[in-house]
Simulated assay, not measured.
Amino acid sequence: MSKDTTGPPSFELGRRHFLAGTGVAAAAGLSGCVGSMSTRAKEVNIAGSSTVFPITEVISSEFSKEREDVTVSISQTGTGGGFSNFFCPGMTDINNASREIADADIEQCDENGVTPIEFTVATDALTVVVNPDADWIDCVTVEELNELWRDGGAERWSDVRDEWPDEEIEFFGADTTSGTFDYFVEEILGDDSHRTDYHATERDRTIVRGVQGNEYAVGYFGFAYYDENPEEVKALEIDDGNGCVEPSLETAKAGEYTPLSRPLFIYVAEQSLTRPEVRDFVRFYLERTSTDLVNEVGYVPLTEDERDENLDKFEAVLDEVTDE
């Protein structure tokens, strides 16, 4: 069975009716149910990115239909929080990640004898959203996004463009433990710091509700959460110097939606691959990264060649693990 250990999933069911009947259960939190992995039979524990969560959840649900003897527990902790609090200390088997593993994460993993194996699983179009009633804005430049989100930046929309409303902006965005936060800072803010006077959360549905509730709000998150809520929030086109481009699966796949298209990852603890249930789950996951399961939750699937490269890498690692 598959369960989300953070309580009711923040990625609402909506069109993803596949969860019905799969036995998704709530618990107090990942830290309350994760102990020594060697003492648990047939369980796969996953933490990390809320952006990657929908992909992992839909694939886990499909896996659970075939393997009712294996429990897959998924927690949304943010990429960084997943690495530092669970994966690198050896408490989880897999970390969902919306950025590449950082040097500090690698060092922490190494100190604890955890070897992370990286697999790309999809492409995302990180999406900036405003209230649907904000009919005065459809497109922003990268420079304007910097002015909106840098520390000490715009307080009112008219601070960015004179013709925009002289109204105070309410900001909603990713928490500092999030890979989405890290990616946004790197691509949009550069040497500037991210503003701190904003509603920071790992719950992307909270961002949807916040922006929906204020005509002058702005927020950002992974494309899947916009794709599920196109009536509640409005996605902005991004102009990186070559004209305005809307976020979509097509523009992300074509490399046109820049600079906010990004790869998404899972990191697997090599040591966990000694357990058959983890091996089976990871193989099942990787085999489906080129399918419509990924597309259906709002991300660009891998090509078949990319999928096969992942599987070859996985089998090579597996040979090393099983030969030890």
Rank of each mutant, 00 (worst) to 15 (best):
Asp105Phe: 11
Thr176Ser: 14
Thr303Ala: 07
Val245Glu: 12
Met91Ser: 14
Glu231Val: 00
Asp138Asn: 14
Tyr198Lys: 11
Gly35Lys: 08
Gly255Arg: 00
Glu270Trp: 02
Pro8Cys: 02
Leu145Ser: 15
Ser261Arg: 13
Ser61Val: 09
Val294Gly: 02
Ile169Phe: 07
Tyr226Asn: 02
Ala154Val: 08
Arg283Trp: 04
Phe171Ser: 05
Ala26Gly: 03
Asn112His: 14
Ile117Gly: 06
Ala20Val: 12
Lys234Pro: 02
Arg288Val: 04
Ser38Lys: 08
Asp312Trp: 06
Thr56Tyr: 03
Glu228Pro: 01
Glu246Asp: 09
Ala26Pro: 03
Thr79Val: 06
Glu306His: 06
Glu12Lys: 14
Thr5Glu: 01
Lys3Phe: 07
Glu320Thr: 14
Asn95His: 10
Thr289Val: 13
Ser193Val: 03
Asp166Glu: 15
Ala269Leu: 05
Val218Thr: 03
Asp197Glu: 10
Ser248Asn: 02
Glu187Lys: 12
Ser31Phe: 09
Ala125Ser: 15
Ile117Asn: 08
Val218Leu: 02
Gly255Cys: 06
Leu145Glu: 15
Ser84Pro: 08
Asp182Thr: 15
Arg156Gln: 15
Asn229Thr: 00
Gly152Ser: 10
Phe18Asp: 05
Ile94Gln: 00
Leu260Asn: 04
Glu304Ser: 12
Asp319Trp: 07
